[in-house]
Design a protein around this nucleic acid. Structure first.
Lengths: 190, 190
DNA sequence: TTGACTTTACCGACCAGACGGTATAGCTGC
DNA sequence: GCAGCTATACCGTCTGGTCGGTAAAGTCAA
């Protein structure tokens, strides 16, 4: 146990959690480029430009690093989504989800490859992600004019995201665009 | 250690690929129960009741074992599906896919967890699976009365399968059943 | 039929390297 | 000097893979 696990919020000294962030993003990049199975502590440390000791200072174990990755992912996606469902308009949640996916695609946001490593090595750590997803689907449904179709739309977007993550792309960009448009058209017409 | 771990089933001469099959199924079971990251050669050999040397006789490297797993999976799913699309009736292919999924669910067929190990450790080996999936979607579309909706149905089933594989189940059995019924109803009404 | 030989199927000891993790010492700004 | 941070050296374990060996089944000429 380190005296204090990084205080997360600091006042004036240097940049607060800069190294921590760099490590998380390095791990993410490494999982994406070298494959999730190459996510060793040494490799992550090297990628982040930090020694192994430095890495283990910020994350006292690999499990802690994985927890950090999950949290990192969750906070990113959560921020992106919650800003979209402010309006209580019908179907705002599912529409926001679709729109978010479209935007991620447009700017080539890479899929969260590090979560694959977590899934394979320590599936239990993904429980927060599962909870988040379940809650989100719940919100989609209660907010939807046609909950059944909204669920379909959610599943379709999920399938597209899974395909991207697993590298089993079957639709090209145009086909995906068409598919999203199709979903939105049905949503609009009720 | 018994000199021969029970030969299981033998007819008259040694059954040709019996041990090989046993190894593949042991690997599959191990990936499912102990997690894909625990798919080491030692563990697979132990699960299959074979020495490591014996395992490496049938699969001269881990890569070869993974190739075997992919092929194993592919032949199983291919057999199941091709028998369903014999009739050239409209929407036979997508309907067969849905029906197959329903049946897999009914008899609690486990998801192909070993493919996760392959994906993480050697994604390139999944190319045959990708090709198979692409071809299958192609067949669904050319056979469909409404290709766009058939694609939606395909993606929904894919999403459900992914959720099962990744353990991120968000719908319970009843909801899934309803969803499949919903898809089939739309297909039927054209 | 038999005995020499080849092939098939399998075993288990061993190895070099990678891995997660520990211990400890060094640096740097306040 | 001291807290926060980083670096290096090292340890035990596990991993994929090699290797020499063995025992049974098949092949075939004499």
């Amino acid at each position: 146990m380190p005296p204090t696990p990084p205080p997360a919020e600091r006042k004036r000294t240097r940049t607060p959690g800069a190294t921590r962030q760099r490590i998380l993003e390095a791990a993410e990049a490494l999982a994406r480029e070298a494959g999730p199975s190459n996510l060793s502590l040494d490799a992550v440390a090297a990628e982040a430009g930090v020694s192994k000791g430095g890495l283990l200072y910020h994350f006292p174990s690999k499990l802690a690093l994985f927890e950090g990755l999950v949290e990192h992912h969750l906070s990113k996606t959560d921020d992106a989504l919650q800003s979209r469902e402010r309006t209580g308009a019908p179907d705002a949640v599912i529409s926001g989800y679709i729109e978010q996916f479209r935007q991620d695609m447009a700017c080539h946001r890479p899929p969260p490859a590090s979560l694959l490593a977590v899934l394979v090595e320590n599936p239990g750590l993904l429980e927060p992600v599962r909870r988040h997803q379940r809650d989100f689907l719940e919100r989609i449904r209660t907010n939807a004019a046609d909950p059944e179709f909204a669920t379909v739309a959610f599943l379709v977007v999920n399938a597209l995201r899974s395909m991207e993550l697993l590298g089993t792309d079957m639709l090209d960009d145009d086909e995906i665009t068409d598919m999203l448009a199709w979903l939105e058209a049905r949503l609009a017409q009720g």
